[in-house]
Design a binder for these strands. Structure first.
Length: 424
DNA sequence: TCTGGGGTCCTAGGACCC
DNA sequence: TCTGGGGTCCTAGGACCC
């Protein structure tokens, strides 16, 4: 059988997660906001129908929210992450060949199995709904890009029952003709605009462009999209996620920050989180980049957004060493008299911890061993007793820079004290 | 008052080397 | 007067994804 890729995508994922634990939200418009309660990042179908755009700043929607009794939530990533894990575990029962693509999407290979792909997809969709309460749509295609298009068709028309099959005898041309070019996976706003200038409105128009033109204007990535839409698979399944080559931790401040000391505190926090991610994938890093930013939207004052990068003599995952470097770098770019809105760090020069150069000096090797033991112990304690049970002092306790989060729902599946209570 | 966060890949061009 | 050329590494910038 020819390859059959399925894309399973949770409908309005964050909004659906909120609904699972509060049935009163059914039929009520639900939106979820980004960190710091900044922008709308998820909308239920009812909220979409109200015309609330994705990414809209929350303060611009206040009146609309009030007028239509919209349920508004701060992001609750503890909940969404755990719900995602449950959805993925359920999907994995349907194919050994699964790639978790994002928090709410997974690709599955559905050929090479005993049952017909479309029948498997239908059962998977129903079981995820029954076991987790999350509605999911599944699209089937002979390539990943076509599976993405099929998924859009599945979502768009309720008559499809949440599953759309663009393989076998399906009319692929009709599917491509019904898909706006800007809705194709791999075509962003820039390329969509450029293609519009070439008279391309749909995916079907796009695959009728000459191959050489596509490669010239859109490089090999664009060519892959073009080939995939023609049924030639270029983007394969990734069995296990490769280690990250860069790790970022950053956040907008809950309010404006003017003091270097506060910025340093927030940077320490970001470094500690980033170093945890680094150790979780068994890596060390040799470079660190610090960035601080004023508001992009402030009238009358120039936008200040400097970065500073520095290296370490020996690659490390030790937060104390990284914090020291981050603080030194911050001092080189901090300008007093400005109101800062955001800060963050990026770790690069990432390599496997076990591939490190050996140290020949015995005292250093011993110190290295003690350091590893210490960090392993901290990670173990935090894994058992919760994040930040053991922290480093530079993160501070006052946290004037902490983010706003005014309406977070309970962490119903990961914190005992916040578990849902059912009254019968 | 209020505008997210975290990633990847590709290419062009400069520095440097022989 | 004539003033190489190819390879590699690094970085910045631009495109995309969720």
């Amino acid at each position: 059988m020819a390859a059959v890729f399925a894309l399973a995508d949770c409908n309005n994922f964050y909004a659906s997660c909120e609904r699972v634990f509060d049935p009163r939200l059914r039929d009520r418009p639900v939106v979820v906001l980004s960190n710091n309660d900044g922008c709308v990042v998820a909308r239920s179908a009812e909220a979409k129908a109200l015309g609330i755009p994705m990414g809209e700043p929350a303060f611009k929607c206040k009146e609309l929210f009030a007028a239509h009794n919209v349920a508004v939530f701060s992001s609750n990533y503890a909940l969404y992450g755990d719900m995602s894990r449950r959805v993925m575990q359920t999907l994995a029962r349907y194919s050994p060949d699964i790639e978790i693509y994002s928090i709410d999407e997974a690709f599955l290979r559905l050929d090479r199995l005993n049952d017909a792909p479309a029948a498997l997809a239908k059962r998977a969709k129903e079981e995820v709904g029954r076991w987790t309460g999350i509605p999911v749509s599944i699209g089937l295609g002979s390539t990943k890009t076509l599976a993405k298009i099929a998924n859009r068709r599945a979502k768009k028309d309720p008559a499809n029952g949440g599953v759309f099959d663009l393989t076998g005898g399906a009319d692929v041309e009709a599917g491509l003709a019904a898909t706006a070019i800007s809705d194709v996976w791999g075509i962003g706003p820039r390329y969509a605009k450029m293609l519009a200038g070439l008279g391309v409105a749909t995916a079907l128009d796009f695959i009728r462009l000459p191959r050489e033109l596509v490669q010239k204007r859109m490089t090999v990535a664009g060519l892959h999209t073009w080939l995939e839409l023609r049924g030639i698979s270029c983007i394969g399944m990734e069995e296990s996620p490769p280690p990250k080559k860069s790790i970022i931790n950053s956040r907008s401040f809950g309010r404006r920050i003017t003091e270097l000391a506060d910025i340093k505190e927030s940077l320490a926090y970001h470094v500690v989180r980033a170093a945890e991610k680094l150790r979780a994938q068994g890596s060390v890093c040799s470079r660190l980049l610090v960035f601080i930013q004023t508001s992009r939207f402030e009238q009358g004052v120039p936008y200040y957004s400097p970065t500073a990068e520095g290296g370490l003599p020996v690659a490390t995952a030790n937060p104390s060493k990284l914090v020291k470097l981050a603080h030194d770098l911050a001092e080189t770019i901090f300008k007093p008299g400005l109101e800062y809105k955001k800060a963050g760090v990026m770790l690069t020069g990432i390599e496997r911890a076990d591939a490190r150069r050996l140290t020949f000096f015995e005292p250093e090797a011993q110190a290295d061993g003690r350091e590893k033991t210490l960090l392993r112990t901290i990670d173990a304690i935090n894994a058992k007793w919760g994040r930040r049970t053991v922290d480093i002092a530079a993160c501070g306790t006052a946290k004037p820079w902490a983010m706003r989060q005014e309406s977070r729902s309970p962490r119903s599946t990961t914190v005992w004290e916040e578990i849902a209570v059912v009254r019968a």
